[in-house]
Structure formats: structure tokens, C-alpha cells
Design a protein around this nucleic acid. Structure first.
Length: 281
DNA sequence: CGTTCAACCTGGGCGC
DNA sequence: TGCGCCCAGGTTGAAC
């Protein structure tokens, strides 16, 4: 689940490792399948232990530790991964432990219930190949209104599907795509090429507004309770959701029941009135 | 170009 | 209680 706001919260939560040296990197002893670590743990350890962390940065939905060697450790939480400095939700799903000396954060854990997460150590060339402009569009928080429109306006795809395309725009996931479109009053099935200039403006404003608000509340902890900040506390933005997972419940703006539909095998939630009209089947 | 499906996994919720 | 099914914040690659 971690999308841009949740991953941003993780990065801010471990900013204290900047300037510290990695002293140990160990696979947590969980009985489950190990997560995917590329290359093998031993060689990741050889290249990182003893190195100083120069920066913690978010790249789309990934947490990146940049070392003084030029290598970067990329942590990709995917569906259920968490970056923690405190007690995990369960001992059982701890996957990786990083120990540091010389900073304000001594220990960072990667916890992942489903185990779909990926941890990868890359040199600058690999980083560019895997996470550069060919793979990831501009960050959703940094993109301008004109660039957003330029990058998507010619597409025949539904706007909801396009917002999830990380090559077009990095950071937006299924939950926030729905919330953003509701905030912008745009129907999720509207093809990109049929959005009018005023709608691109509204979409861009909603994108920035929703993501910034979600960051302020440290992300969304859904009903299953999986997502936590680095201190293992719940986020707060779920209390501000207007459409996500609210099918059948009244729209908070107009009272019309929220609808669910499926696009690209993913649930989309929207208000047929607030986001209505524009689309014919 | 665009869509659809399956795969990677665990676990919660639901109907029977 | 229990079983079998469906669902989930993401990403990738193959097939059409």
C-alpha cells in the first residue's frame, strides 16, 4: 500500500541516519520466505557495511539510502512493506535489520507481511537504468500543471489508469488516484485526451493538495492496520478519505452513494454526481 | 498503442 | 467452527 505519502513519511522518519555509518546488515530470522534482496545479502553487506549514509531520499514509492561509495540501497515496500525504527507489528515478518553508528537513528528494520517487497543495492549506472527518467516520470509532488497535461494529454487511456503509470508520473497509487480525482471532480473513466485545460488545472491542484494533506497526516492506515509510520503508529489520513473503500456510502460532498468499478484490474471508487456527466460508456 | 491476465505472497472478511 | 472463496496500498512480463 505504501504510496507517495506513506513512503515520504518513512523517509522523514529515518532522516536521522544521514551522516551515520552502517555497522551491520542482517536478514531477520523469520520463518517465512526471505524477501527479494538483489544482489545476494553477502555482497550487499560487503559493499555497504562501514559506509556512511549521505542522504535519504524518496524515489517514487521507494526509500533510498545513498552511501558515500556512490551505491544506493533501494527499499521498495510494494504492498505491505514497512520501514521502522521501533517495535514492529509482528516479530514474524521482520525481514532485514540495518544498524548504524554516529547518527541519531541506530537501528532500522524492514518489515513486510506479504513479502512482496524488494531491496536492491545499485551503483549509479544501475540506478539510472532502473529508476531514471526512462522508468519513472517526474515526482508527483514536483510536477507542474503544464507538464502533467503535456505528458498525458495525448493518451487514449482513462485518466485513473494513466495516473497509476509510474513512467508518466511517479508516486501516485490506487488509493490516492481515487481521492485526487474526486477532489478534482473528474470521472475516473474519462480518457486523458478528453480532459479540457481547466480540468488539467484542477487535477494538478488536487494532486498537490491531496498528497500534501496525506503527508501531513502521515499517510493512510486502512482497515487491516498494516501501514504504520516508523514508530509503528497509525497514520491519520484514512479519516479524510472521501471515496476510497466507501462504496455504497454517501458522498461527503453531495450524499450520492459512492460507486466502485474496476479499471486495469484495480478497484476505483468515485462519486457519480461530483465526478459525473462527462463520460459515456 | 492499449488492455488483460498471471505471478509474486499473507491474511482478513465473508457466505455457507 | 471451519472451509473455500474473494479481496488488498505494487510491479512486472507475456500475450493479444
Amino acid at each position: 500500500m505504501p504510496e507517495l505519502p506513506e513512503v515520504e513519511t518513512m523517509c522523514r522518519g529515518i532522516a536521522g541516519v544521514v551522516g551515520a555509518r552502517l555497522t551491520a546488515l542482517t536478514a531477520a530470522r523469520c520463518r517465512r520466505q526471505p524477501i527479494s534482496i538483489v544482489p545476494r545479502l553477502a555482497s550487499v553487506r560487503r559493499r555497504t557495511v562501514g559506509r556512511r549514509v549521505e542522504a535519504v531520499e524518496r524515489v517514487g514509492k521507494r526509500v533510498v539510502l545513498a552511501f558515500d561509495s556512490g551505491d544506493r540501497l533501494v527499499i521498495e515496500p510494494r504492498m505491505t512493506g514497512l520501514v521502522l525504527v521501533a517495535d514492529p507489528p509482528s516479530r514474524e515478518h521482520l525481514r532485514l535489520r540495518l544498524a548504524f553508528a554516529g547518527g541519531t537513528v541506530r537501528e532500522v528494520w524492514f518489515w513486510d507481511r506479504r513479502g512482496l517487497g524488494v531491496v536492491r543495492l545499485v551503483d549509479p549506472r544501475q540506478f539510472d537504468k532502473l529508476y531514471g527518467p526512462a522508468k519513472l516520470g517526474p515526482d508527483a509532488l514536483a510536477i507542474g500543471a503544464d507538464e502533467l497535461a503535456e505528458r498525458l494529454a495525448d493518451s487514449r487511456r482513462a485518466i485513473k489508469v494513466a495516473l497509476l503509470d509510474q513512467r508518466a508520473l511517479a508516486g501516485v497509487g490506487n488509493l490516492y488516484a481515487a481521492e485526487i480525482l474526486h477532489a478534482a471532480g473528474i470521472h475516473p473513466e474519462l480518457p486523458c485526451r478528453r480532459l479540457r485545460p481547466a480540468q488539467w488545472q484542477r487535477l494538478h491542484a488536487a494532486l498537490a493538495r491531496v498528497l500534501r494533506a496525506a503527508i501531513r497526516h502521515e499517510g493512510s492506515t486502512l482497515a487491516d492496520g498494516t501501514y504504520r509510520n516508523v514508530l509503528a503508529q497509525s497514520g491519520g489520513y484514512q479519516n479524510h478519505h472521501r471515496v476510497y473503500d466507501r462504496a455504497g456510502q454517501p458522498c461527503l460532498a453531495c450524499g450520492t452513494p459512492i460507486r466502485r468499478l474496476v479499471q486495469a484490474q484495480r478497484s476505483t471508487f468515485y462519486c457519480p454526481r461530483c465526478q459525473g456527466r462527462q463520460v459515456r460508456p
